[in-house]
Design a protein around this nucleic acid. Sequence first.
DNA 1: ATGGGGACATAAGCTGGGGTTATGAGCGGT
DNA 2: ACCGCTCATAACCCCAGCTTATGTCCCCAT
Lengths: 311, 311
Amino acid sequence: MSGDSSGPLPAPLAHRVPDLGALELLLAVARLGSLGRAARELGITQPAASGRVRAMERLLGVALVERSPRGSRLTDAGVLVTDWARKVVEAAEALDAGAQALRGRRDSRLRVAASMTIAEYLLPGWLIALRTERPGTAVSLSTGNSAAVAERLLAGQADLGFVEGLDVPAGLDGAVVGRDRLVVVTAPGHPWARRRAPLDPAELAATPLILRERGSGTRQVLDAALAAHGGLAEPLLELASTTAAKAAAVSGAGPSVLSELAIGEELAARRLVEIPVRDLSLSRALRAVWPTGQRPTGPARELLGLTRSRG
Amino acid sequence: MSGDSSGPLPAPLAHRVPDLGALELLLAVARLGSLGRAARELGITQPAASGRVRAMERLLGVALVERSPRGSRLTDAGVLVTDWARKVVEAAEALDAGAQALRGRRDSRLRVAASMTIAEYLLPGWLIALRTERPGTAVSLSTGNSAAVAERLLAGQADLGFVEGLDVPAGLDGAVVGRDRLVVVTAPGHPWARRRAPLDPAELAATPLILRERGSGTRQVLDAALAAHGGLAEPLLELASTTAAKAAAVSGAGPSVLSELAIGEELAARRLVEIPVRDLSLSRALRAVWPTGQRPTGPARELLGLTRSRG
DNA sequence: ATGGGGACATAAGCTGGGGTTATGAGCGGT
DNA sequence: ACCGCTCATAACCCCAGCTTATGTCCCCAT
């Protein structure tokens, strides 16, 4: 073993990080102040919990918990690790909520049809909130562009839709639930990141960008907004997914224009930098929609309430 | 089995969500377009990968991958699940990077001392960026308040510090690397969430809030900012951690004032709503610091470069 | 047309991590 | 002095996930 000729390739992440069960356990210990109580909450025995936490500490090489005959408290490092662990668990909960909806049968109490962007970034959070308010509400999810969402709603195959775009599809009523702002970004090393003055729209239009392929929603908005400034230059790169475009931008391949929803993390950690643009609002509404006249009722109304902007 | 008298308590998250290894595998399949190649990249065999993806699909109840004799592509649902999975894996990577730094030995090439907030929310991202730029740089991390950070730097026990606060500790030079804006928030159901006009500072000061305990950094800033408007009312709740305060606010217990860094997710998903306040800037600088005159060099300079604001 | 080489699937067998029960040992309150 | 809570240790068990070996399908190149 370890006689690998290809060099010491990094151990896979899963071997360096405790598994989800262990992280969940750590959160329970932090919350309840005792290994035994945490164990009970997760439906395992106290020795199992004890061993698991020990294994986690061995794996991470850091003492996380201070044991005493009267309970357990987190160490300083434990507090930090627990906060990081919470992020992992929350992301896993979002995945779980989303997957449950994707699996959802046609006979679900609430059938949602949503655009990709909304389904990806916002819906899981809403579903989690809905679950805490109305546990047991079965939700099913289908995704598609605005036209597909409208079609499902009008055919009675969905109870509530979510679309992004400049206008409401024909035959539907809607309510704005948020905004999707498109942001010009570069890696921190790019010259634009050092500009003092905002970018000129014409300059943006003239620069080759990393973009999603023609026909994507973000591309359409960008096209429309820059039509008055000479139109988009030939793209620097044309990629199939938002994720790929983001990765290219982070790696410094060039400037890109991406949805704010997709790059919150990257901006916060300064893996990407927002470039202000003068007099250009690349913003579109995110809307909940339903067939004209048929105001949502029951679970659909409930979910709508979770998402509505004030007013 | 399943004859439990305590009712159908929800299966723990870890039993409903694929483990990190499986998610990592899914990302590799998405990126490489083939189960076999993904397997090779993760250092397992093709049948193992095949079985694992199958198990993941069974667990989630959703087909993720379209197999063909020429490779594998994600299904529509698979794209969505993969995006959610990426968030989980990224959070796990942040945990890993942070834990490595916590474990870091005293003889690390780069010894960082940071405030809790910065260590928790920003540092992991920086460490990941540093790892991709300068792989193999060993980083160690210790946390403490501004005074403790200054002490470590001046004692030569740390090479670079990060503090939040209104001013730079004596004996140190610094550079602003970001801002920590405090935000007034409530659950979406709170009356304040329906206000049309911004809140008056005096009204905020007079209202009992969910706060961290006296002495915490956020509490100090708030105290100072509202001193001119009558001073803080008695808190509604006084909690030991930011996380606890956040949870209380989300559950609708009342209004709170929290760091923007801590509630990005909650704002995006509208589990919390920001309440604008007129003429009140609750903002403090996040600074990198080092002993006066000793500009960072080597790895410290590298890390600083990753975090610096433009200019 | 035919063999080679990729892709994924199936089968049989091993191993170890994580679970269990049973028990011991501190510490605090009554 | 004793109960009740805490956590730790020991001995045992099981199955998830890995391996190797093999089969099938399809495309492509000779």
